[in-house]
Design a protein around this nucleic acid. Sequence first.
DNA 1: GCCGATTTGTCCGTATGTATC
DNA 2: CGATACATACGGACAAATCGG
Lengths: 244, 244
Amino acid sequence: MPKSKFDKIYADLRNRIETLEYEFNSFLPSENELTKMYSSSRATVRRALAELIRRGYIQTNQGSRVRIIYEPVERNIFKIGGIESFKEAAIRNGFSYGTKVVRLEKVVADEKTAERTGFKPGDELYDVCRIRLVDGMPLILDKNYFLTSVARDLTEEIAKSSIYEYLENELHVKIMTSKRRMTTELATEEDRRHLELADYNCLAVVSGRVFNGDGIQFEYTESRHRPDYFCFEDTATRKKFSGR
Amino acid sequence: MPKSKFDKIYADLRNRIETLEYEFNSFLPSENELTKMYSSSRATVRRALAELIRRGYIQTNQGSRVRIIYEPVERNIFKIGGIESFKEAAIRNGFSYGTKVVRLEKVVADEKTAERTGFKPGDELYDVCRIRLVDGMPLILDKNYFLTSVARDLTEEIAKSSIYEYLENELHVKIMTSKRRMTTELATEEDRRHLELADYNCLAVVSGRVFNGDGIQFEYTESRHRPDYFCFEDTATRKKFSGR
DNA sequence: GCCGATTTGTCCGTATGTATC
DNA sequence: CGATACATACGGACAAATCGG
């Protein structure tokens, strides 16, 4: 539920847009009208608008009014969003889900895995490999490495439900930032063994390095998706400032 | 070049971080110190910081200081960022580039292409198909549709250099928002004919719908990438407000 | 474990610039 | 040209989390 004021405004506007109360290609009330409607300052309204822009609901243009560019689409794909666990994503997309733990063991990072994962050689890690079932179908092969010093005492039981819930609620780890990278890679023997790839000889791979509040990378994650059930969405706006 | 004040602060801080003056896992000066350093208000500093967060340079945590989480990486991959043309992206990544125009013709959208592209049946479109060469290698098959009413008088000459430059500088089209979607798809006969796919039977596909300042979608674009040269990067932060 | 100082998060009101209509 | 609307910027206030003594 929305906590802060800007979040209430954001959630309310988003809701009105999604229910088509404000329809595609029409205009939102002006910022001044919105400040009155929500009895807030213009800065707060603008913050909510900024979030709607980032999510592709509206677009703004100095001098003209705020235009709605949201159109409803079917939600029949397993889209991925911010940092969230598989369980959270499955619930958000309205699917039944399950997890099969293939492997859970302690390893020490060698030179090669360190290079690939962002850890240092010698770091002690949990090596977790799981299969994600959506509506009974094995769609994702999840390979994770966690620093044992942060993700203490991982068990199969935890890996089967939700490691993130355990980290946040039990160990009080602050999960902050995730740098992700999406690629298309050739399927390995392991992929083929666990997923039903049909004609595809490739997978959609999302790999990421996750940082906690202390700025240490405590996880490397690699989600290997069956291509026909994978989709990543994004909204880009013409940059208003110096490029990256 | 930076125009606004917040942009100057953003560009300066980003530069200091990239040159490792502020190094990985150390802290930025506090917001109060930064307001003094840049003789600005806290709001302006915070806006610059927000952008640095979004780009994965720093992470913040209420109560503790702003931590740098940027680590330099090799730029040997053709990464894609915001809305930018192929030409802009190639220059940013420091590659030589070329374009071969395979097809440029007027078509009228039928039911099926309308469904796929987001246009309406009956819309008159330019159907453009180009091959993108990076360092001489054909890496991307670019298929674009433009509303002829917006992208008037397209020529092969323009398609060969930069359609975006033409739209912005000649036709003064405001390119605003792009809703993109990344998938992995089976290669078609056309893909195989134009790209050197080797073992891969799939491609990384980025498709997008692009809107101008008037809120009309004037372009549908589909970039079909050779998997071994494709990579999309992204930074996610734990959401502080209602999910999407 | 408590307390106070520091730091970031949220919010408000106002003023000025600039593009659009 | 004037009115409207969004963009940028400033300064102040209080809340909430963190950290060190």
